[in-house]
């Protein structure tokens, strides 16, 4: 898949990575195998700089967290990765396979999804009046091929595909404990199940990178513990990498292998949970009550 060339930022759309990016990638040494990395990413809204020279990396197969106070630019980073925003400058690369590097800057959102980047939203965004099964089936959209002809004439290939995807969706729902809910309107589900359904929908597209935006928001302690298990399960069963935005420090420290800390749009720290816990900059950014969460 060739990335769409952007007239304004030819260097982002070009197949060859800019020199700076190559250095960043090289800095990880020979065994480095990132699935996603950004280089000097910058994003402005009017006068406000939401992201400022953010260079971070998600290792293939890892669970990586992105934390920071409110308004630090975490969701903006997600939106740049998924193509909802076009970054002002800098670059983001996605590597679905080790040797295949795709620039994400300015890629349209559905293209990013088709490449294998699934996501959930901070404020759950399900297709509320559609059934749970349909939500997941729409998640399969990128895997399906049927077009207008197939829809109108229901040829064998189309019906076979429908059946396969319905079974797949059902299997996904079963795996995440939603099989009793297949015919319920998604909007009628309780909060925790809506969160799970949103993850299931994202998984239906068969992503290799899953972006979770505050999945623990609104969950109680028990549910958060279950969520931690769920995230580990997903990583193992679906063989994918997870990038997680989260405020709940217990969850972050519990599941993630690497943590990146954003503050006022800048990446102020990056490392293992142990390193982050001891990092004075991070503690300063989280001064006050939140500082205890790190301990």
């Amino acid at each position: 898949m060739t990335p769409r060339a952007e007239s304004k930022h030819p260097e982002i759309g070009a197949g060859a990575a800019p020199a700076g990016a190559a250095e960043t990638a090289g800095a990880f040494g020979l065994d480095a195998d990132p699935i996603l990395f950004s280089d000097s990413l910058r994003m402005d809204f009017g006068g406000l700089t939401a992201l400022d020279q953010v260079s971070l990396t998600v290792e293939r197969g890892s669970i990586t967290a992105l934390i920071g106070p409110n308004g630090a630019g975490k969701t903006t980073f997600f939106n740049c990765v998924t193509g909802i925003y076009k970054p002002g400058s800098g670059s983001i690369f996605f590597l679905p396979e080790k040797e295949k590097r795709i620039s994400l800057g300015g890629l349209r959102p559905h293209k990013a999804a088709q490449l294998g980047i699934g996501r959930t939203f901070q404020n759950i965004r399900l297709f509320n009046t559609l059934t749970v099964l349909e939500n997941v089936l729409i998640g399969c959209h990128a895997r399906m091929r049927a077009g207008l002809w197939g829809a109108l004439f229901r040829d064998r290939k189309t019906m076979e595909e429908e059946r396969r995807m319905t079974d797949l969706s059902y299997a996904i729902l079963e795996r995440y404990g939603l099989q009793a809910r297949v015919n319920d309107p998604a909007g009628s589900l309780p909060y925790g199940e809506q969160r799970r359904l949103e993850i299931a929908r994202a998984l239906a597209s068969g992503p290799s990178l899953l972006l979770l935006d505050e999945p623990a928001a609104g969950l109680n302690n028990q549910e958060t513990l279950e969520l931690a298990d769920l995230i580990r399960h997903i990583r193992r069963d679906e063989k994918l990498s997870v990038l997680l935005i989260e405020h709940d420090m217990s969850l972050v420290m519990n599941v993630s292998e690497r943590i990146n800390v954003l503050d006022y749009g800048r990446l102020i720290a990056s490392g293992t949970p142990e390193e982050i816990r001891k990092n004075p900059d991070v503690v300063r950014a989280y001064l006050g009550e939140d500082a205890d969460d790190l301990g």
Binding site: G46, T75, N79, I84
Partner: peptide, 8 residues
């Protein structure tokens, strides 16, 4: 009006 990027 200045061009605004709609928040998600």
């Amino acid at each position: 009006g200045a061009a605004t990027t709609h928040k998600v």
